[in-house]
Every structure is written in structure tokens, then in C-alpha cells.
């Protein structure tokens, strides 16, 4: 009798442990990329804002810590906000409560990033708060921003979802940040659908490995590429001419040609 009871207890305990392990694994796969390479070397300047009287610098590391990982969507949201702020406020430091962000990307990574910047996220102690809205491409305003709902909404995510409006509330001025298609690898969104949602069928182990490598590549691009390579409407900065180097070479060329010609004429005469 005692033996049967202890066996039963053992089975229940095993079941509970297995369930917890399975659940934790699901969460990990859902939010982040298990087994992803460590972050590449990168230098991203922080986003500087005024939170009331306090000037604060928000780094990508802080955003990553808040979200749990530095992921593709988080990096994209961070870079998009940086660009939007630089386009609208230029050299000014924006006040947090003057920033409004409208995102079309329903993913937890981008949501946590935007909420962290605008100070609208859970567990954030801020003096002021900006505005953050999630409005899908079809005009649907997302109010339920739970991980489960965002996962459902992001099922058919494509390049069209990677658009964000960064606005200055006081003036009504907005800048639309649109991610360039070439930032994503070929077939990335189809692969994502397969790997994350099993649509139209479950991904093979090769496809899962390919998705992981694509995900790492895209994250690296968001961390290391300049704005003009990532976003539409940003012009490539013109390279500054090395005038002195050019002048030296041009002088050598002119003097050299003159000497050569004079040498030839001198020999003839």
C-alpha cells in the first residue's frame, strides 16, 4: 500500500517537473532565440531624454534587460526611436512626455522597448510618461498587449509591420520610420511563420537552424548598420573629400608632367 502511494507521488512529481520544464521552454522559444550567438561588438549611442527635470540616457542594454534579451524587434524599435528623435528634435533633448510612438509591430520585444522609452511599461518608475500606441496596418488599435495576444497578432508579420511613427506631441510633427526590405534575409518571414507557428507546416531541424542564423544576422544588422542602410528615406552621408591629400597628388602630377615635358624638350634642343 505504502509502495503504491510512493510510486504515485513519484509520478506526480515527475509530471509536475516535466510540465514546468516544458512551460519554461515554450516561453523561451516564444520570446527569445535559444542557443543564439552572443551579441556582436557594437556601439550604439544611448537615447537621451528629459524625464521631468532629470536628464536620462537609455541604452539598448537597459532595454534588453527590461525585456529579458536584446532581440531583433527590440533592436529595431530602439534604432527606429533613435532615428525618429534625431529627425524631429535634431540636436534638442526631447521631454519624455512630449514623445508619442505609434507602432505597427505587435511583438513583445518592440512593445517593451517603446514602453521603456516612453515610460509606459509595467514596473517603471518615471517622473513623466510619453504615449505609446500599437495600431496595426489595418487600423486595429491593440489594447490587449499581453504576450499571448501579441504572439497571435504577429503570426503573419511581414516587412509592412516594421513601420513606426515617432511624434512630437507639442507640435504634432511626426516622422515615419520604415525598415528597408533588404535588412531582412530572403524568406525570413515565411520561415518565421513555419518555425514559430507551424504555418503551413512544422519546420524541419534544418529550417530551424536556418531561422536561428537569419535571426542572428538581422539582429547584427540592427545593432551595427548605419541608419541609411536600415531605414527608408535616410540619405547616405557624403564622404568628406580629402582635399589636402588630393591637392598634394595633383601638385605632384602637374610638377611631374612639367618636368617630364621640359626634360624631353631640353634633350631635343
Amino acid at each position: 500500500m505504502k509502495d503504491t502511494k510512493s510510486r504515485m507521488n513519484f509520478r506526480v512529481a515527475t509530471l509536475v517537473i516535466m510540465s514546468i520544464l516544458a512551460l519554461s521552454l515554450t516561453i523561451a522559444v516564444d520570446a527569445h532565440m535559444p542557443g543564439a550567438k552572443p551579441l556582436p561588438d557594437f556601439e550604439l549611442t544611448p537615447i537621451v531624454i528629459n524625464d521631468g527635470e532629470t536628464k536620462m540616457e537609455i541604452t539598448i542594454e537597459e532595454v534588453g534587460k527590461y525585456h529579458g534579451d536584446i532581440c531583433v524587434c527590440g533592436c529595431c524599435a530602439f534604432r527606429a526611436t533613435q532615428l525618429g528623435i534625431s529627425q524631429i528634435w535634431e540636436d534638442e533633448v526631447p521631454a519624455r512626455d512630449d514623445i508619442k510612438i505609434i507602432s505597427r509591430l505587435p511583438t513583445p520585444g518592440s512593445k517593451d522597448c517603446f514602453q521603456y522609452i516612453t515610460g509606459t511599461g509595467h514596473g517603471l518608475e518615471t517622473n513623466t510618461k510619453g504615449e505609446y500606441k500599437m495600431i496595426l496596418s489595418d487600423g486595429t488599435v491593440v489594447t490587449n498587449m499581453t504576450k499571448k495576444n501579441l504572439k497571435k497578432l504577429s503570426k503573419h508579420a511581414s516587412i509592412d509591420y516594421f513601420r513606426f511613427d515617432v511624434c512630437r506631441i507639442s507640435t504634432g510633427e511626426c516622422f515615419e520610420v520604415t525598415v528597408k526590405e533588404q535588412v531582412f534575409t530572403d524568406g525570413y518571414f515565411e520561415l518565421r511563420k513555419k518555425v514559430k507557428f507551424g504555418i503551413p507546416e512544422n519546420a524541419t531541424s534544418e529550417e530551424k537552424a536556418l531561422f536561428k542564423s537569419d535571426w542572428e544576422t538581422i539582429r547584427e544588422r540592427f545593432l551595427t548598420s548605419p541608419d541609411w542602410q536600415l531605414f527608408d528615406g535616410v540619405e547616405e552621408p557624403e564622404e568628406e573629400n580629402d582635399v589636402s591629400g588630393g591637392a598634394i597628388f595633383f601638385s605632384i602630377l602637374v610638377i611631374g608632367s612639367f618636368l617630364l615635358v621640359s626634360l624631353v624638350y631640353r634633350k631635343r634642343s
Binding site: 573629400n241 580629402d242 591629400g245 588630393g246 597628388f249 595633383f250
Partner: peptide, 19 residues
């Protein structure tokens, strides 16, 4: 500046071999 900038480095190996 654009004119002089065109003559700025870097140069192909043949230019270095020319003199």
C-alpha cells in the same frame, strides 16, 4: 574641393610604381 578630392588617396598599385 570636389575636384581636388578626386585626386585623394587611395591609389592603385600602378600609380605607386609609376615614378
Amino acid at each position: 574641393s570636389g575636384f581636388l578630392g578626386t585626386y585623394a588617396p587611395p591609389y592603385a598599385p600602378a600609380i605607386f610604381l609609376l615614378p
